[in-house]
Design a binder for these strands. Structure first.
Length: 913
RNA sequence: GGGCGCUUAGCUCAGUUGGUUAGAGCAUUACCUUCACACGGUAGGGGUCACUGGUUCGAGUCCAGUAGCGCCCACCA
């Protein structure tokens, strides 16, 4: 076996072999288990969030596959309407062109070309992570099939009146030139101003320029540039201060237009002056107020964020923020500006380009969400879908219960074009395919709606559109609903909730059984990793510097459910070091099987046949009980426990706990203790003992390798082959997840918790002995002489069997093991250096030990009193579990014995002095 | 404004339904290049579990309150 672990070579080697061998494809045999990948943006490059998300999924997929499930993991990418259009537009700009110069058709063609050339980046990167997706099932949200699903769904909902078109105020990105859904707007704190502006009351004496009007009301606004669009000012109807204004009118500054004062509950009396200017075309609240009061909607802005003619000739064509300045200056000059206050508020930004959002009145398409939400809420309430961790279900409910209609139209070119057609007679209908003529009037001159659909309108169908819907495919029948959906909590509203709605509506069944929510990946300062912040650690660089396996393992052992992950470079050392450790112990085991003849005590070539090793990798093993040591029994039990524990954690989606259990087993239990202890047997003069020790190493390590595999697929595959657990053309990917030991095995081998307890206490003894060596400064090269004082004759006999091994650990001369009764009732360890022999207890600080024991007793005093009381108080028994009482009682006895022992020892020592 | 979460060793975090001595990794101290591994081994040091009160035989864990931090949602112009 290779001496050096070269992850790069290994990782480069295995992925193509796996893919070409069809190991990622479902077998069609066994119970189906499926999952769809959250499709990354086709423009995307792999970031830590993907690395975490996709590693979790791969762990699940590989684990389920090893459990014999028929695993289908569907990969794919999202066409990411605005993001992709932006990228291509940027490229065009370098050529000095705008998309309008190309025209719609040519532009879309250009985007497809871009996708062909660059769209595969993220998909390649997923491969370098080791993701075991079935690439033959790869889908793209703009694929022909998925586009059909989109059109089908749109038309169905259109016909059911679940989709409507309306002139509504929407979030508008002036830079992207399109509407955005509510959740595509990111609100950020803004240190702004509150301008206090005087609106003269109509009928009052008008002032002169530069001087305040005699009779005016004070309106506070954060957006003075919208003033030309005002069509009213509003007060709270219950506000006594302004009762006299009801029914009056005021004059709009600068234009002199007369607008009414209205009363509406929406106005907060406490904020600002208690008077609000109402601009129905440029503020969502004002829009609602305007509807209630029948106000005119004056749109004073263009789609690109500049003012239009309705803003007034002076401001026409001016950018909105320049206009703000100009209007404030003009208000000031006209004597309308009273004063300015600082004001901290929230301002919406485009989630794509971070431009400040404008509220804009425009004709848009909407989905009625309330009817869809009912079943989707029920699906989670009934437990048909669970969230892990469960607390996110509450987040989901809150959103669903306050759900608002979904604006699905976007004024861009890249995406699914809205399948609605119009004829010249004014007929309007939806159809999946472009019809030849109007179905109502037969007119041949028809045109399609110009808008495209929100990208999420294809994503929300992903769990069934990728399986072939609307066709009734075999995939759909076999793999829907999927098992798990993994994502970060920030996407519950965008995507998870909508998929549940779509699944319930169009499939009549939930899209997945469980939603696995993992944390958001953040940097050391707790910031979300993002390209714009430049703080993202590039997973590919980590893979380059460490390895994909290191990255994967480190991520898994760092991520607690639903808790954000804080990442720094040194995290990846954990995975790297663990990989190296596994490699080295494998090399050690392998060495004993293959480097026969190198020394007389090592195994000969016939010791462990290839076929036997392969069988051990299938958990097939026969052992000679006569040759078993307690250490063997212990590691067999611990390996069994580890497998059960890891399986349990994976079932609960506790990847961190699973990773830690594996790490602890492999490193601490297996390498640090069992392998070290097995060295004496491996070098024993008895060939049968050597063989059995080696068999156990292969068996236990083979089990560990398989459990590690979902976390570190490349390394484990390489070792699985190099150590001979399988032959060419085979794979650990398809090896069975380790089974539990049978009762018969446990019985015939004497595997029991009691043996584990003995071995563990023996290890404590060794640790104590090592501590003595350190304490006495005995050089590691120097053999010390230990006298082990056993608690009883039975223990003495047991320790005597392990004497050689213990001596090996302690680098000691042959041990002297005596029962405590033989040396005056003082159990413990003794050490001798040169000719001086001291019992262990004689080495400790007696007064300090007594104080420690005293503190212990003190701590337990209350409870011990309870134990005593228990004898006469039946009520106590029912409250404290019997085993706990028993434990405490034993502890009390031990403590008392300890005190007595130390007392006796102190006396002995005093006498000796 | 509403909702959720966090606060445990110098740092990053575990700690299932309350139950023996609160753990891990990194960092740190000492010793060791011993025939798998220095990306290693051995032995250590380091914690009033944010604070206050309560329930309990027993609280890091449950309850109430306080403080600080973070996230999500939201139309105070």
């Amino acid at each position: 076996m290779d001496k050096h672990y070269d992850p790069k070579a290994i990782e480069a080697k295995w992925y193509p072999i796996w893919e070409n061998s069809g190991f990622f494809k479902p077998t069609g045999q066994g119970e189906p288990w499926s999952m769809v990948i959250p499709p990354p943006n086709v423009t995307g490059i792999l970031h830590m969030g993907h690395a975490l998300n996709d590693t979790i999924q791969d762990v699940l997929a590989r684990w389920r596959r090893m459990q014999g499930r028929d695993v289908l993991w569907v990969p794919g990418t999202d066409h990411a309407g605005i993001a992709t259009q932006n990228v291509v537009e940027k490229a065009l700009r370098k050529e000095g062109k705008r998309r309008q110069d190309l025209g719609r058709e040519a532009f879309v063609e250009r985007v497809w070309e871009w996708r062909k050339q660059y769209g595969g980046t993220i998909v390649r990167q997923l491969r370098s992570l080791g993701c075991s997706c079935d690439w033959s099932h790869e889908r793209f949200t703009m694929d022909e099939g998925l586009s059909r699903a989109v059109a089908e769904v749109f038309c169905k909902m259109y016909d059911e009146d679940l989709i409507y078109r309306g002139n509504y105020i929407v979030n508008w990105c002036p830079r992207c030139g399109t509407a955005l859904a509510d959740d595509e707007v990111e609100h950020e704190a803004n240190h702004g101003h509150l301008w206090h502006i005087r609106y003269p009351v109509v009928g009052s004496a008008l002032g002169v320029k530069g001087k305040p009007y005699e009779d005016y009301i004070m309106v506070a606004t954060t957006r003075p540039e919208t003033l030309p669009g005002d069509t009213a000012v509003a007060v709270n109807p219950k506000d006594e201060r302004y009762l006299h204004l009801h029914g009056k009118s005021v004059m709009l500054p600068l234009s002199g237009r007369e607008i009414p004062v209205i009363a509406d509950d929406y106005v907060e009396r406490e904020f600002g002056t208690g008077i609000v200017k109402i601009t129905p075309a440029h503020d969502p609240n004002d829009f609602q107020v305007g509807k209630r009061h029948g106000l005119e909607e004056i749109n004073i802005m263009n789609g690109d964020g500049t003012m239009n003619a309705l803003a007034g000739p002076k401001y026409d064509g001016m950018d909105r923020f320049d206009c703000r300045k100009a209007i404030v200056e003009d208000l000031d000059a006209g004597g309308f500006l009273d004063h300015v206050e600082d004001d901290d508020n929230q301002v919406g930004h485009c989630y794509r380009c971070h431009t400040v959002i404008e509220s804009r009145l425009s004709p848009q398409w909407f989905v009625r969400m309330k009817p869809l939400a009912v079943k989707a809420v029920e699906a989670v309430r009934s437990g048909a879908i669970t969230f892990s961790p469960k607390r996110y279900e509450q987040t989901y409910f809150n959103w669903m219960e306050n759900i608002r209609d979904w604006c699905i139209s976007r004024q861009i070119w890249w995406g699914h074009r809205i399948p609605v057609y119009y004829c010249d007679c004014g007929h309007q209908w939806a159809a999946p395919e472009r019809p030849a003529k109007c179905p109502k009037c037969g007119a041949a001159s028809i045109r399609q709606d110009e808008d495209v659909l929100d990208t999420w309108f294809s994503s929300w169908l992903w769990p069934f559109s990728t399986l072939g819907w609307p066709d009734k495919t075999a995939d759909l029948a076999r793999y829907y609903p999927t098992a798990d959906l993994c994502t970060a909590p920030d996407i519950i509203f965008f995507w998870v909730a909508r998929m549940i709605m779509a699944g319930c509506k169009f499939m009549g069944d939930v899209p997945f059984r469980n939603v696995v929510l993992h944390g958001v990946v953040r940097d050391e300062q707790g910031r979300k990793m993002s390209k714009s912040l430049g703080n993202s650690l590039d997973p590919l660089k980590i893979i380059e510097e460490f390895s994909a396996d290191s990255l994967r393992f480190s991520l898994m052992q760092t991520t607690a459910p639903g808790i954000d992950v804080y990442i720094s470079m040194n995290k990846f050392e954990i995975g790297r070091n663990f990989g190296t450790k596994i490699w080295n112990v494998a090399r050690f085991i392998d060495m004993y099987a293959t480097q026969h003849g190198a020394s007389a005590t090592q195994l000969d070539a016939s010791a462990l046949q290839a076929a036997q090793i392969a069988a051990l990798g299938r958990d097939e093993i026969t052992l000679d009980p006569a040759l078993l040591t307690d250490d063997d029994r212990c590691i067999l039990a611990q390996a069994d426990d580890m497998v059960a524990t890891v399986t349990g954690w994976l079932e609960k989606y506790r990847f961190q706990d699973a990773a830690l259990a594996i790490y602890d087993f492999v490193w601490s239990k297996f390498c640090d203790w069992h392998v070290e202890g097995a060295k004496s047997a491996l070098n024993s003069a008895d060939p049968a003992a050597r063989l059995q020790a080696l068999k156990i190493l292969y068996f236990v390590f083979g089990r560990a390798l398989r459990v590690v595999h979902p976390f570190m697929p490349f390394l484990t595959e390489e070792l699985w082959h190099q150590m001979g657990f399988c032959g060419e053309g085979e794979t650990v990917m398809r090896a069975a997840w380790p089974r539990a030991l049978t009762d018969a095995e446990r019985e015939s081998w004497g595997v029991s918790p009691e043996v584990v307890a003995y071995v563990e206490s023996k290890r404590e003894l060794i640790t104590a002995g090592r501590a003595l060596r350190t304490q006495y400064g005995i050089a590691p090269s120097k053999a010390a002489h230990f006298i082990v004082v056993a608690a009883s004759g039975d223990v003495r006999d047991r320790l005597s069997r392990d004497a050689a091994m213990i001596a090996g650990f302690l680098r000691a001369e042959p041990l002297e093991i005596v029962a405590s009764a033989d040396v005056g009732g003082m159990p413990g360890t003794a050490v001798s250096v040169g000719s001086i022999h001291l019992p262990l207890a004689g080495l400790v600080d007696i007064p300090a030990e007594l104080a420690k024991i005293g503190a212990e007793l003190d701590k337990n005093k209350k409870f011990l009193a309870g134990v005593v009381a228990k004898l006469s108080n039946e009520g106590f028994v029912s409250r404290a579990p019997a085993n706990v009482v028993e434990q405490q009682r034993q502890r009390k006895v031990e403590l008392e014995a300890e005190i007595a022992r130390l007392d006796a020892l102190a006396a002995t020592l005093r006498k000796a002095e």
